[in-house]
Each structure stands twice: as C-alpha cells, then as structure tokens.
Write a protein that binds this DNA or RNA. Structure first.
Lengths: 197, 197
DNA sequence: ATCTATATGTTGACAACGTCAATATTATTG
DNA sequence: CAATAATATTGACGTTGTCAACATATAGAT
C-alpha cells in the first residue's frame, strides 16, 4: 500500500510580488543596492530566478517600486511635520530632523531613492509622483514662514541643506544621529536667514 | 628566403597604469560607474583583462584612484577660491559655484567620489586625505567670515548646501547650470544667516 | 656575465549575474 | 468546456570580477 505523498506546496506562491519586495528590502539594507541580486531575492522569497520577471519588467522596475515606497514613507514624515500643531518654525525643524533621520535609519534605501544610475525616477510616474509629493510637503511648511515670492528659494535651501547633510552623513560618516536635533535647528536658522529680513 | 616579421609591439605597455586610469575616466563619464567593467577598460587600454590586477589590487582600488584624482581637482577649485583676491563673501560664493560646477560638469565622477558602496574612501588614505584637504579649503574661506566658535557650524552649513544642491541637480534634474551663480549667492546668504548676527 | 627574483603581461577557467527562451501548471475569460 | 493569460520552472547565453597557471621582460645579487 502506497502511503500518500506529503502535502505539496501550492504551485502558486500566492503573494509572490510582496514576498519579492520584502526580500529586496531586507537585502537592500544589509548588502546595499550593489549586493542586491535578483536571483538572491527570488531564492529568499522561495521562488525561481525567473519569477521576478512575472511581476516586474526588469530589475530596475523592481527597484523603482522600492523607491516609490521610500518616497511614500518620507512624504508621510514630511506631512506629519507639516500637519503637527507646532509653531511654523518648529515645524520646519521637525521636518528637517525627520528627513535626516530617514536617511540615517535606512541609508541604503535613501541612496537608492536618489541614485539616477540605478533607478531613473523620471521613467516611473508613481515613484516620481511620490517624490514630488514629498517635496511639496516641505514647501508647504516653508510657505507658512515667508511670503509667496521667496517660498521657492527658501524651499530649495531647506531641501539642499537636509539632503546634503543626510547624504554626507551616510556617505562620509560626517556626523552621527546624536547631532541630528542640533543640526536641524541650525539649518532652520540658515533657511530663515537666506531671505532678506 | 623568409621576409622579416613586422615590428612587434613591445611586451610591456610602457604606461599601463595611466592608460587604465584614462580609459576608466572616459568610460565613467559616458557609461557611469555601473557601466564601468574592468574588462572593458583593459581592452580600451590595449591590455588583457587580467592586466589591471598588476597595478591595482582590485576594481575598488582602481576606482579609489579616480576618487582621489577627483578630490584633488575639487580641492584645487576650492583653493583657487580661497586664494583669490576677492572680498571674503565673494570667495564663499565663488567656492560654492565651483563646487556645483564640478558636480554638473563631471557628474559620474562626483557620484563616485561620494559613493560609499562603490569606494569606501576611509579605506584609502590618499583619497581620504584629498577629500579632507578639499573640505579644509572651504573651512578656510568660512573662517574669514566669522568668529572661531562658529566656523565649524557655518562650514557644515556651507558644505551641506552645495553638496545637497549639487547632488539633487545631478540625480533629480532639479536645476541646470544656468542657475548656478544665483544659487551660489543664495547659499552664501543662508550660510551667513545661519549664525546669530 | 649569469642566475634568481620580481614585475608585467597573457589565456583558461570558474561562479555569479541579468535576461532570453522554452516548457509546465494553474487561473481566468469567453 | 476550450482557449487564453498569468504564474511558475529550468536550460541557456553573454558578461562580469577574479583565481590560477603560464609566459616574457626587467631588476637585483653574486
């Protein structure tokens, strides 16, 4: 009498796309984008190496989805600062600190989000839309601090400052998270001081 | 009667290391760091694929040499601004504009210089030395504008600003070179405005 | 001058990678 | 129910960085 075979795994993974993205996200933060191979993440998701191509056009499309998710999270942080019941100046400081925190907490994702060589965000409307929304929240915060004709300049200064500092911290070890609050305050002063009083 | 064979190429290239670096530099700016393969640049330099290993420990070591060269050039730009016979405020503006120009003119090299994933500068003393010298020139410019206890903060603001703006321009197409001078001036105001008057 | 060691150079080979192609299984559509 | 589409697998290919073995030229020691 032949014993019945053990229960087989179903043919379909059932949640392949999300499993792939989860695997990608994990590998990204441990090995960086350079160490993120499609074959590796397929294996981690319990799929074959060709399976990612059923859900993403190519490797860049998969990375673009990570980028979109990253901008959505960053945008939510910026929105939280914009919607907080703090005085306008404190909102800008809170937004700056959040931006820097995001980069310091998920450096590989932050790198990927601004790595035109790996993902050209302009080719992925959802990702670029999320990026624009993120920046718009920052502009909203700045708009509460100045007149309409200087909002653009001040927003540019704000973004350049936090982005430059965050990038230098993760790429050169410029400073660690213990300086974040002080630097956010310093940058707020610089932003306010960039316009004529 | 056997005719004599045509003149052979000498066994040794004669300038292999520099030929490899030149080839790497060319490919870097056309295909980016992601498109820069050791085999390709060896071929371009007229050498076999193993030849680069006679001059560089591995691919990263070769890239580190490019990074060092990049920081030397950037440092020279910063020094030129520091040594110019302009008033101190104009020197800062000139330095900022030079930094942004460097990034916009050689974006792939600029990316590589701050790409910890590709080249960890901390592991290459000559490259990190050149990077530090570059930043020190910026600090020298700032020192002429403020008191000793605020030099560090102002230098950090200056660097974060130009670095953030330069990076955003090359990675997101934020703005083109036509805005460079105006933005350098705006950033100077922000730097000066970051300290209490 | 001769011999040995070192530096520079080549090609064979390997594992890993992204992706194409063919095949198999399951789910959806008409 | 049959046909189509979506999801899944494995074979295969060209490319990559690097190891290893071998070849050639140069430098150093005697």
């Amino acid at each position: 009498m032949k014993s019945s075979p053990p229960p087989q795994q179903p043919y379909h993974h059932g949640d392949a796309r999300n499993a792939l993205l989860r695997a990608a996200s994990e590998i990204l933060e441990t090995s960086g984008a350079a160490g993120l191979a499609l074959r590796q993440l397929a294996e981690r998701a319990g799929l074959s190496r060709q399976a990612p191509y059923n859900h993403f056009a190519d490797k860049q499309a998969l990375l673009a989805e990570l980028v979109k998710q990253g901008f959505e999270r960053l945008g939510a942080d910026m929105k939280a600062a914009a919607d907080s019941d703090l005085p306008p100046v404190a909102r800008l400081t809170k937004a700056g600190a959040s931006y820097i925190a995001f980069a310091q907490q998920t450096p590989a994702l932050f790198r990927l989000m601004f790595s035109k060589e790996l993902v050209d965000v302009a080719c992925y409307p959802k990702a670029s839309g999320a990026a624009e929304h993120s920046f718009a929240q920052l502009c909203k915060i700045v708009a509460a601090l100045t007149s309409p004709e200087t909002v653009a300049d001040m927003s540019l200064v704000a973004w350049s400052l936090v982005h430059g500092y965050a990038t230098l911290c993760i790429e050169t070890g410029l400073e660690g998270p213990e300086h974040r609050a002080d630097r956010a305050a310093l940058f707020t002063r610089a932003v306010l001081g960039s316009v004529q009083p």
